[in-house]
Structure formats: structure tokens, C-alpha cells
């Protein structure tokens, strides 16, 4: 038995050594002698923290943030490092690690990160700690700022759009967990839908997590069984389940924050986008100019835009766009009513 173990370990070592040798071989040297680079200032270093895996393809908010973050790299030449799938108990530790390693800015991307944000920011006054999600209060230090979307207004736009697109008058709203930001948004959906069609019904269901794709699919199918023909979902990677369930039940989905069309061309009606690149440009310009200050920056209706309909609902598209524009301009007033959404 020992001989077998020895042979197996030896085999693994040889394979490992071979892999290291192959991967470690230097690329053929370029004949041209490289000119020494002129001395440039170190780029600004940004650490972003996500609690979900693969944020570039995760939930809508994560995707939208990812697109904004990328502008820091591509337009400003900043160095971007992303920590993904960071569990909640490790958030503060991860943020502190970025600060210890000399990062200039640490970005939290979820409202569930608020506690860690408040814990770490006062400990590292030379690092900026930014929150890109819903909060009403700031940490007890000067090195903090937040960009906060008005989730209620966003919800009213989704609700109005869904009510105009729905033939049954029943709209499905699916959430990962009943967090305050989603209760606020879904209250907006209910009121937005009522503003267009007073008889409309909004079914609100919580999946219980953000990532379980099969569960999301089943909840969507169930909402369609109950009459929903337009679905909106705010969740994480589980969104793929929503798209699957909607396609199976011939329902339409309104994408959240980012354009979801490529994920399910047959199911996506349009998406209500959160236009993040301007937000990140504003942040980068303020940082470069030294004018970044403590405070909460609100994202309002003008920051929320409609993605291309790509031929879905050709008869109603113009009217929908006009109605959404009226909401943006404040010509349609929708009351702010909070609903109990357990």
C-alpha cells in the first residue's frame, strides 16, 4: 500500500513539475530592446467587494456596478482589484486588507455591506470607503461617501412599465430576500402599476436566497400559474432561473439595472437600466481633483433609463417610453406609500 501511495504521489509531483515548467517558460524574447518607461505616478488603486461570485455576470445591480467599475480602469487608468464571493462575516476583514495594502479607495457594492463599511472606515482615515447601494446614514468618519439609488422611484418606473405591458393585469415581482431596499422598490412597483392600471395586481414572492437557480425558476413558474405575464426580479445569479421559468411560461421579464437581453432574448421585454458609468466618472473626477467629500449622492429618475425593446411590444413601445419620460420629468406624480411585504 505504501508503494502505491509513493507511486501516486511521485506521479502527481512529476505532473506538477511538468505543468510548472511549461507555464513558467518565458515567452520568446523580443529582439527589439525595450525603451525604459518614463517615470509615471502610481495609478490610483481601487478595491471593490462583492458578496456574490462572478459579478460581471451576476445579478442586475452587480452587473451594472461592474460596468461602472470598469470605466475606472479603461477611462482613468486606475488599477482595479475585485474581491468576489466575500461572505458577510469576512467583509470588514477584506476591506481592511485592501486598506492595509495601500489601496486608495475601497468600494462596497451592496446595502448588506453597510455594517462592515461603518466598522472599517473610521480605522483607516487615509483610505476612501465608498458604498454603492442603499443607505440612510454614513459612518463616523470623513473618508466616506455613498451613491444611493432612489429605489422607490426606480420601482415606480418598473411598475408603470409592467402595467402597460401586462395583458392579464397581474405582475410578478420576485426578490432574493426581503431586505429593506427591495421592500422599498417593490412598494414603488405596486404604486407605479396602480398609477397606470388601478386594477393591476402585483404578486411579490421571496425565494429565500440570491443564488439558487432552480428555486428561482420554480417561483417564477408559480407566479405565471397565478396569472402573471410580466415578471420583474431583483436577485443574484439566481436571475437565470427567473429567465428560464419565464421562457417556459411564455411570460416577459423586465431586466433589473443592466441589459439582460443577451441572457434570454426570448424572455426579456426590456431592462430598466441604472446608468453607472457617469456615477463612477463623477467619483473619479472628484478624487483626482481632490474634491471628493463626505456625503450621500442620490441617483434619481434621470439616472434610470430604458434599454432597447428590440421589437418586443411594437404597438405599445412609444406609449411606454412617453409614460416613463413623464415620470422622469415629474409630470406623473406617484404617491410614496410603503407596503408590508413580508
Amino acid at each position: 500500500m505504501r508503494k502505491r501511495h509513493f507511486s501516486f504521489i511521485a506521479l502527481l509531483l512529476v505532473l506538477g513539475l511538468f505543468t510548472v515548467m511549461v507555464l513558467g517558460c518565458p515567452a520568446p524574447a523580443d529582439d527589439a530592446v525595450a525603451e525604459p518607461d518614463p517615470v509615471e505616478p502610481d495609478p490610483v488603486r481601487v478595491g471593490a467587494i462583492y458578496s456574490i461570485p462572478d459579478p460581471a455576470r451576476g445579478g442586475g445591480w452587480d452587473r451594472a456596478q461592474y460596468a461602472g467599475l470598469k470605466t475606472l480602469e479603461t477611462e482613468f487608468g486606475w488599477e482595479l482589484s475585485i474581491a468576489e464571493a466575500v461572505e458577510f462575516p469576512k467583509l470588514a476583514e477584506t476591506a481592511a486588507e485592501f486598506a492595509e495594502r495601500g489601496f486608495d479607495i475601497v468600494i462596497f457594492t451592496s446595502s448588506a455591506h453597510v455594517d462592515a463599511w461603518k466598522e472599517v472606515a473610521p480605522q483607516y482615515p487615509d483610505t476612501w470607503f465608498l458604498l454603492m447601494s442603499v443607505t440612510e446614514t454614513l459612518p463616523e468618519s470623513d473618508n466616506v461617501a455613498a451613491w444611493v439609488p432612489d429605489m422607490y422611484v426606480y420601482g415606480t418606473m418598473v411598475g408603470a412599465l409592467a402595467a402597460m405591458a401586462s395583458e392579464t393585469g397581474t405582475i410578478g415581482a420576485i426578490g432574493g430576500m426581503p431586505i429593506p431596499a427591495l421592500k422599498l422598490m417593490y412598494s414603488g412597483i405596486i404604486e407605479g402599476a396602480k398609477a397606470i392600471n388601478p386594477d393591476s395586481e402585483v404578486l411579490v414572492d421571496w425565494v429565500g436566497d440570491w443564488v439558487d437557480v432552480p428555486k428561482h425558476s420554480e417561483v417564477t413558474r408559480l407566479q405565471i400559474e397565478r396569472g402573471a405575464d410580466v415578471i420583474f426580479a431583483v436577485t443574484g445569479p439566481g436571475t437565470k432561473g427567473v429567465l428560464d421559468g419565464a421562457e417556459a411560461g411564455n411570460a416577459l421579464v423586465i431586466g433589473y439595472a443592466a441589459d439582460w437581453y443577451d441572457d434570454a432574448p426570448g424572455a426579456i421585454l426590456t431592462s430598466v437600466l441604472v446608468d453607472t458609468p457617469p456615477m463612477y466618472r463623477e467619483l473619479a473626477e472628484a478624487f483626482n481633483a481632490g474634491t471628493l467629500t463626505k456625503g450621500i449622492n442620490q441617483l434619481t429618475a434621470v439616472n434610470f433609463t430604458l434599454a432597447d425593446f428590440r421589437g418586443k411590444l411594437p404597438d405599445a413601445e412609444a406609449q411606454i417610453k412617453e409614460t416613463i419620460a413623464k415620470i422622469q420629468r415629474g409630470e406623473i406624480q406617484i404617491p410614496r406609500v410603503m407596503h408590508e411585504l413580508e
Binding site: P53, V211, V213, P237, G238, K240, G241, L243, D244
Partner: peptide, 9 residues
């Protein structure tokens, strides 16, 4: 079933 894949599906 779900016709897609995510990490740790």
C-alpha cells in the same frame, strides 16, 4: 431543468 449554469449551481 434550468438550462443554465452558475458557480456552485
Amino acid at each position: 431543468w434550468v438550462r443554465s449554469f452558475t458557480d456552485n449551481i
